[in-house]
Amino acid sequence: MADATTGGTRRPTQLPRGRHGLSREEVVRSQRDRILLALAEATAERGYAATPVAEVLRRAGVSRETFYELFSSKDEAFAAAYDRAVELLLQRITQGHAAAGEAPQDDGARMARVEALLTGYLDALADEPAFARVFLIEAHAAGPEPTRRRYETQRGIAVLIADLLDAHSDAQRFACESLVASISALVTARIATGEDVRGLRAPLLELLRRSGDLFGDLPAA
């Protein structure tokens, strides 16, 4: 598939005219990827409600017939763009978590894994601002189903945080859920205003280090 790489993510480009030697499956995948990226970027600039299918077609370089062969509606295409945003986000979180998990299991290992997870999350949002807006902001504008799926993803991240922090009690797990909700609100505000979400990394880690056993069994600061 013809593409370029930006911010660690392969970004699809329009296929060359004429014979290109790609299979039908590769062509469809390229068209789908371009539509999802175009929808994410158009939505980030204009808002979901103000983004017509025609604008997505223009940016993606596909025909209206091709769009409706792949998606039954703009809503269905947005749901796929939302899934792509979650995929990119979880991929970065998982990569950081896996790398940190290879460290020796000493007293600082748990904090190192939390730091890697947080860094991966913030880097993913910063590197993919259009998909970040799809995940954090435009999901609410697209109706109840994307909003419900966003909160499911957020709850899943809260469970992961609770496990990493060795949260045993109901109070600690609720604190972890509250922490993730607070982080979500903080990054949403910065994405909405164009601020760098990476600036949240240091103060959030400091908060965790000074939290004692509020969230779980962390080494003392």
Rank of each mutant, 00 (worst) to 15 (best):
M1K: 11
T5P: 00
T5I: 15
R10S: 11
R10T: 11
R10L: 09
R17C: 01
R17S: 15
R19S: 12
R19H: 14
H20L: 06
G21D: 08
G21R: 09
G21F: 12
L22F: 11
L22A: 06
L22M: 09
E25Y: 07
V27Q: 11
V27E: 12
V27Y: 04
V27K: 08
V28N: 07
V28F: 05
V28R: 14
V28Y: 04
Q31H: 13
R32A: 00
D33N: 12
L36F: 01
L37M: 10
A38T: 05
E41K: 02
E41Q: 10
E41N: 06
A42I: 02
G47N: 03
Y48A: 01
Y48D: 01
A50T: 06
A50W: 08
V53D: 00
E55D: 14
L57P: 05
R58D: 11
R58L: 11
R58Y: 03
G61T: 03
R64A: 12
E65I: 09
T66M: 06
T66L: 02
F67C: 01
Y82P: 00
V86K: 11
L90V: 12
Q91D: 15
T94C: 00
T94P: 00
Q95S: 13
G96I: 05
G96K: 05
A98K: 10
A100W: 06
D107T: 14
A109N: 09
A109C: 07
A109Y: 11
R110K: 12
V114R: 00
E115A: 15
A116R: 06
L117W: 11
L118K: 05
T119A: 13
A124I: 02
A126W: 10
E128L: 08
A130P: 03
A130Q: 04
F131K: 04
A132F: 03
V134L: 04
F135S: 08
I137K: 05
I137N: 02
H140P: 00
A141F: 07
P144H: 06
P144A: 08
T147H: 12
R149Q: 13
R150V: 01
T153S: 13
T153F: 14
Q154M: 12
I157K: 09
A158H: 06
I161N: 07
L164E: 09
A167L: 02
S169N: 01
D170F: 11
S178Q: 13
I183R: 08
S184Q: 12
S184I: 02
T188G: 09
A192I: 00
A192T: 10
E195I: 00
E195Q: 15
V197N: 06
L200I: 10
L200H: 05
L200T: 09
L200W: 08
A202T: 15
A202K: 14
P203R: 10
L207G: 13
G212V: 04
D213H: 11
G216T: 04
D217Y: 07
